[in-house]
Every structure is written in structure tokens, then in C-alpha cells.
Amino acid sequence: MGDVRVTNNGKNTQDTIILGVETSCDETAVAVVKNGRDILSNTVSSQIESHKRFGGVVPEIASRHHVEQITYILEEAMAEAEVSFDDIDAIAVTEGPGLVGALLIGVNAAKAIAFSQNKPLIGVHHIAGHIYANHIVEELTFPLLTLVVSGGHTELVYMKEHGSFEVIGETRDDAVGEAYDKVARTLGLPYPGGPHIDRLAHEGEASITLPRAWLEPDSFDFSFSGLKSAVINTLHNAKQRGETLPVENLAASFQESVIEVLVTKTMKAAKEKNVDRVLLAGGVAANKGLRKELSDACEAEGLKLTIPPMSLCTDNAAMIAAAGTILYEKGYRSGDRLNGQPGLELSSQ
């Protein structure tokens, strides 16, 4: 149909270019993605340094940073992608879940662009984004199962096709990343604690017996608060006996317990749901121990496994643009009334 117009960024009229915006926590992120899989730019401004002194993310401070950063990051991402608003087909933005004040900055910035530039607006679920980070790495095939692990989430999500999400298991208390951060604090490690535990775990030996929460035999849910308490108690008891436990060994024992439960439940769910593809998603997917154990288990079972590179595991906007592209092609549109929704359910995507 007609001529194919080619512009300086290599876009032709059949291409779909989506501008993605993500501000659900402490990362101000903007990306430009072509056809749901080609990253033209993926810009992230992390606030970790500002929150370190408080030992965690302070919502009010995160919101303040987002307002200060948002147009800088938008401009940087568009310049790097060498696109103008004429090239962009739609704006995709994280609508939830996350910190409400933080979400509102991305949502209102995206609405401002959509209105000013007369573009469609697409609200994206943050976890759908994490899952679609894998689509950038390798084209998704269905049915598949995703293990989502981050500071705010621990979920097993089954997908029978694009844009369809069924949460078959989730944490009943702490998210994995949250448990890591809390245990790290107990061990006197700096924030964010996850990477420190992962590193120490490789130096130590899992010599301390810690519990595994399997819950009901047919459940794919998780629970990590008991494990976290067990670590705290173990440390406390040792101190009372005047002993010092090697931090590496405690880290290794904690990590072993977490990973065993995650991997075992994922493999069991994969079998029950009869999938041949497994995805790992979310910030904790950066954990080397988890990557290795899950890879080994999938290999043993003959399952295809995709794990995104680090830059796509942690919060970013390329994943939001990738998920947004699928929604855009399905004809899904959000209106002017789009809002930040801290407790948004994945199934409502």
C-alpha cells in the first residue's frame, strides 16, 4: 500500500515507534522502542544515591526527584533515539502498581505529551513491563510461565498468549527483594542489600539450617517473612552465646533457602501448566545464584529459559514501551482520565 517513507532513524511507515515512560519507584526512565523489540534508546536516572542515607526509598523525595528529572530524561531518550514527535505512534506509561506520588509524575507527563502532540496514550502494568523485557531479548512464544522477582513483587504468571496474564502464585507477605533488603540490614550491609548478599553468598557456605516455606502442597504462593525472622533469631541467639557467625555463611544459607523455594515452585508450575518456556523478570533476576540454579533446573527439564540482561531486569522504560506496543497493536487506548494506581492488578491489563 503506497510508498514506504524512510526517515533518518530508519523508520518506515510500517514501523511502530513507542515512547515509554516509567516512574513507579525511584527510577525516572524513558525509552524509545521500535516494533516492540528494537531499543532505540533506554534512559534511566536512578535516585539510589539520594535515598541511601535514609536506608530505603522515601516516597516524597522520590516524587520530588521525578518532577525535577522528567523532561531532561524525555529529551535525552528522544535525542539518543534520533526521533521527533512526528515519528512516535503512541506514549506508553506505567500506570501501576508502585508509589502513588511517583506514578503520578509519569502518568501526568505522558498525558501532557499525548495531549500536546495529539498521540494515543497507553497505560501499562509495571509487571507486564518486566515480563515484556524478555520479548526484547527473544521473541516470546506461548504458553509460557514467568517468575517475577523484585523489591515489590514475587509472582508466578502464566501467559497463554500476548497480553494475557494469569497470576497463579504470589507472595503472602514480603517480596523477595524486600526480604533481601531486610536481612541485609540485619547483617549490617548497606542499602540496597540484595547485591551484597548475593556476593557474600558466593564466598560462604550454606552451613546454617534455615526454614523453607512450602505452604500447602498445591499452592504456588510464597512466604518469606518466616525465613527473614529465622535469620534475625539465628544472629540474636549466636550473639547471646557470645559467638560470631560468619556473615558469608549466613548470607549463603539465606540465599540457598530463597532460591530453592523459588526454583522448585517454578519448575512444578511449569510442569502443571505444561509450558515449554520460562521467563525470569524483575530486579532480583540480577541475582547470580538465582540465574544459575534456574538455568540448571530448566536445562534438566528441557525448558527454554530467557533471562534479560541486567539493564532490562531493573526498572526501565524500554520494557514499558515493549509491553505498550503489544497493547497498541491490540487497539487498547487509555483516555485523559488515566490515573496512577498504586494497587493495580495485573489481570486488569
Partner: peptide, 19 residues
């Protein structure tokens, strides 16, 4: 209101930047 002010400011500055 912190949140209220941010909604207006974000909308205004992003519109201004894009236009």
C-alpha cells in the same frame, strides 16, 4: 498540597517542553 502542586507542575512543564 505537595501532590497537587506536582500534578500541575508536571503537566505544565511537560506540555511546555514538548511544545
Amino acid at each position: 498540597s505537595y501532590t497537587g502542586v506536582r500534578i500541575g507542575v508536571t503537566t505544565a512543564k511537560t506540555m511546555a517542553w514538548s511544545l
